[in-house]
Amino acid sequence: MASFWAKEVPATIIIAALLVWIMPMMIGTYTLTVLVIYGMLGFSLGLIWGFGGILCFGQAAFFGLGAYTYAIAAINIGDSTIPMLLAVLVPAAFAALLGAMMFYGRLTDVYLGVITLVVTLILFKFISSTAGPEYVIGKARLGGFNGIPGFQTLNVPGRPNDYIYGDPYFYFCAVLLLIVYLLVSWLLKSSFGRVAVGIRENEVRVALMGYDVSARKTVLFSVGAAVAGLAGALFANWGEIVTPNLFSLGQSAEIIIWCIVGGLGTRIGPIVGAAGLAYLKFLLGQQSMIDNTLLTGIILVLFVLFLPKGLVPAIVSLWRISFGQRRRVPRHGARRLRSRSAGHG
């Protein structure tokens, strides 16, 4: 824990600052903003799947819920501060309910996947069918397939006419991602996070130690949904419109692919995977030769076949092979020898 505050936090902040400084020289901040948002969305699934072993096929549900919550609340309230908070709290509460139902019901992985998938579908179908004038929440019309446009976008707290957009909005999103990243890192270093990893490794064993596995999984699931909800609210502000497509299955599938390609079980992997693949999609969107989804599929297949652990773990081990080991050879080798002789002696 001490080395976390002394080394990891400053290092993360420095690297993040460098990236925020350099990246806008190569990619426009408007595109970068959405890459950061997708990074946060990928990160939310990377947390619950990579560290909690919960494969959620419906992370897009929380993303969309966050976006819609923000849009509806912003229309009704007029200032963006409370809607931003609600966009985090509503998906978290929804996930807590859904999670409690699934985890206390002792559902296994497959059913968990099916239920989260179906919940996403239900939300998608429901929101798509709200075109009629009777679907109104306060002053906000849900608008069916056309979505909700024209809500109050992010403003300086308490000053509804001072909008945050363009470059400052990019910095705002980047700083939020950094804060979320650090908070989640701290969570994973804490006892709660370590036990969560234990649950991923062997649920029965952790229960036999006396930990309430269902409660812990529900909390983690809810934290993941809160992060996804925040990403959704940021996305709503970026696009200035929310549509049912946020809930679509394609979106959910993409998040899973980001995690696999980036590297499951790492913190940075899903962020890199999300931003990388989303940027690729953006580039491909400018031409019509190759189909976008086809290429995403090919990338997924190639990764599963050749880099099943994902990009970041592959780079890390490559780094260790080429640079890290030379310094550590004597100690490392000795330790391995000792443990081997102990194992078979």
């Binding site: 370590r194 036990v195 234990g198 490794e201 062997n202 029965v204 952790v206 130690m209 006396g210």
Partner: peptide, 20 residues
């Protein structure tokens, strides 16, 4: 045997002790 295979011995035992 029910153990957390991806974690080391210390982490396994620490987790059991941490409960109490």
């Amino acid at each position: 045997p029910n153990l957390m295979d991806g974690l080391d011995v210390f982490e396994n035992i620490w987790m059991a002790a941490r409960r109490f």
